[in-house]
């Protein structure tokens, strides 16, 4: 993905855009970073988000948005290099270290992130968070997965269904 061109008459400094979270907090970031979001990229290419306007994001709260932008800012330079085919091993290792630490967070934040990454269509972030959640739950039993993800307790009918399946697929629990 190529970085979007800077706006008219703004060639020296990096172009900035303003994003507004659901709770009305304004975030000013470089257009290149915000453009990691496929959803925002079009608006930004059309010249939106500059000056006093800002792009409202009614589905993302400020805590989540600041986390999302932390990711975008870190990954923007590599993305600008066309997926960084010429990045050095050091750069890649640094990004990997950042990613590992980045998802080492509270579960509820993780879920907010996955939804935000989805709404904003940030492919790398979506993949990173989905992988983290998959790693968290893949070794767990169905009940443990339900608890981890905060599902309500199963109804008796659902419970009976689960029991029947467990009989059938006993090997998956050994």
């Amino acid at each position: 993905m190529a970085a979007p061109e800077s706006g008219d008459g703004n060639n020296g400094a990096a172009r900035m855009v303003t994003l507004i979270s659901s709770d009305n907090t304004r975030f000013e970031v470089e257009a290149a970073a915000a453009s990691l979001s496929q959803t925002l990229q079009l608006t930004i290419l059309d010249g939106g988000g500059g000056g006093g306007d800002g792009i409202p994001l009614p589905n993302v709260d400020s805590a989540t948005l600041s986390k999302v932008l932390e990711y975008c800012i870190k990954h923007a330079p590599a993305a600008a290099n066309g997926g960084a085919p010429n990045a050095t091993a050091v750069d890649r290792a640094e990004l990997e270290r950042f990613d590992n630490e980045f998802v080492n967070i509270d579960q509820s934040v993780l879920y907010s992130l996955i939804m935000a990454a989805h709404n904003l269509e940030i492919e790398g972030l979506q993949s990173l968070v989905a992988k983290k959640v998959a790693d968290m739950i893949k070794g767990k039993s169905p009940m443990e997965i339900r608890r981890t993800l905060g599902f309500p307790d199963p109804t008796p009918e659902e419970q009976a269904e689960m029991n029947a399946h467990m009989l059938e697929y006993g090997w998956a629990y050994e």
């Binding site: 739950i137 689960m162 697929y169 998956a172």
Partner: peptide
């Protein structure tokens, strides 16, 4: 989002996806 998560379950450990199939309808 759930599809994205389930896609990342390892195929070399088939039990993971079987257990996931029992989580809910």
């Amino acid at each position: 989002a759930i599809i994205e998560i389930l896609l990342r379950f390892p195929p070399a450990d088939p039990a993971c996806l079987i257990r996931a199939a029992l989580v809910c309808r």
